[in-house]
């Protein structure tokens, strides 16, 4: 029986009488089946952990500098190729990105014109819904990278070995497996809101993690803050139109992106703020009427678009 004990336990028992050593060895053997009940839940998946350590290794990995340079060169080249391909195939509505095993990465630029809404499936299985007036570059290499201007909703496929990172204005969004909305329109702070899972948003050394029901608005010269979402992030996909205490200029820009209608606002009104919550806004008319009535504005439609005035 004693030979079933670990060596250091055998040493610890050596001074005891032989019968007691045997009895304790029997207890040891019996106890094998008496391990405490395991916790009724599993450890978090390894990708959660990797997502938390990778931001520190991505942009500043001095130890991998040669490899990184090489990869960047390939990516730049690949992106130029993709741009040429997009130019040549401008009539094709959806471009698919196929990652060839031999290629370190593939890159493509996608544009949704004002008034358009486009849905893509990326080579890794992730889905992106690109809002009107938005541009996105995706490169599906060792790290899945997206550079976004405008707004998009992401439903990201799990892949423990390849982080998914979005650059949106001055913030970096690190995806921890999840569905969420990113808004990075010019002139406005970047906004990220989460529907499912978890994402980390960073700007310089500042970093916050968002869970469902939380969003961050990356206001200039202020630390990133986590606040509750007022509306489901990405509700624009199903036709909702929300604006929270937004200036008329911003709302006009949003209408132009969403519906492709150029909206001009009388300069004296541009800074007026308004809140709109329209769960269903299938056309620009719905939004403009909801604005014009309560604010006492007139809406003039011309060949060039719409003009809002007193």
């Amino acid at each position: 029986m004693l030979d079933r004990l670990p060596l250091d336990l055998r040493d610890a028992l050596a001074d005891l009488p032989a019968p007691e050593q045997d009895a304790l060895a029997r207890v040891w053997v019996l106890a094998e089946a008496a391990a405490p009940a395991p916790p009724p839940f599993a450890p978090p998946p390894v990708e959660d952990l990797l997502a938390r350590i990778r931001p520190s290794t991505l942009p500043l990995a001095h130890d991998h500098a040669p490899a990184r340079r090489a990869r960047l060169r390939v990516r730049t080249w690949a992106r130029m190729g993709a741009l040429l391909a997009v130019a040549a195939l401008a009539a094709v509505a959806v471009t698919t990105w196929t990652a060839r095993p031999s290629a370190p990465s593939t890159a493509a630029t996608e544009v949704a014109a004002p008034g358009q809404k486009r849905t893509f499936r990326l080579a890794d299985g992730s889905t992106v819904v690109l809002a009107g007036g938005s541009t996105m570059q995706a490169s599906m290499g060792d790290t899945r990278r997206v550079v976004l201007t405008g707004e998009a909703f992401f439903d990201v496929a799990h892949d423990a070995t390849r982080p998914f990172v979005i650059q949106a204005r001055d913030v970096t969004v690190q995806v921890l497996g999840t569905a969420f909305n990113v808004r990075a329109v010019s002139g406005r702070p970047a906004e990220v809101g989460v529907v499912r899972g978890r994402v980390a948003v960073s700007r310089g050394t500042d970093r916050v993690e968002l869970t469902p029901g939380e969003q961050t608005v990356a206001e200039a010269a202020r630390p990133l803050r986590v606040v509750p979402t007022a509306h489901e992030p990405g509700a624009w996909r199903t036709g909702a139109f929300y604006a929270e205490n937004a200036t008329l200029a911003d709302i006009a820009a949003e209408v132009e992106r969403r519906y492709g209608t150029a909206v001009t606002v009388e300069p004296s009104l541009e800074d007026r703020r308004w809140t709109l919550a329209l769960p269903s806004a299938p056309s620009d008319t719905v939004v403009l009427d909801a604005l014009a009535g309560p604010m006492g504005l007139t809406v003039t439609r011309t060949a060039e678009g719409v003009r809002l005035a007193k």
């Binding site: 405490p36 395991p38 916790p39 839940f41 450890p43 390894v46 990797l50 290794t57 130890d63 423990a160």
Partner: peptide, 29 residues
């Protein structure tokens, strides 16, 4: 060597035991 794949393998191999150990102290999921 900052090899995150080795780190992932370490986590996969060792996290269940550490999970049990931590749970035996905290008793909270």
């Amino acid at each position: 060597a900052s090899d995150d794949r080795g780190f992932a393998a370490l986590y996969t191999a060792t996290s269940p035991a550490l999970h049990r150990y931590i749970h035996s102290i905290t008793r909270d999921a």
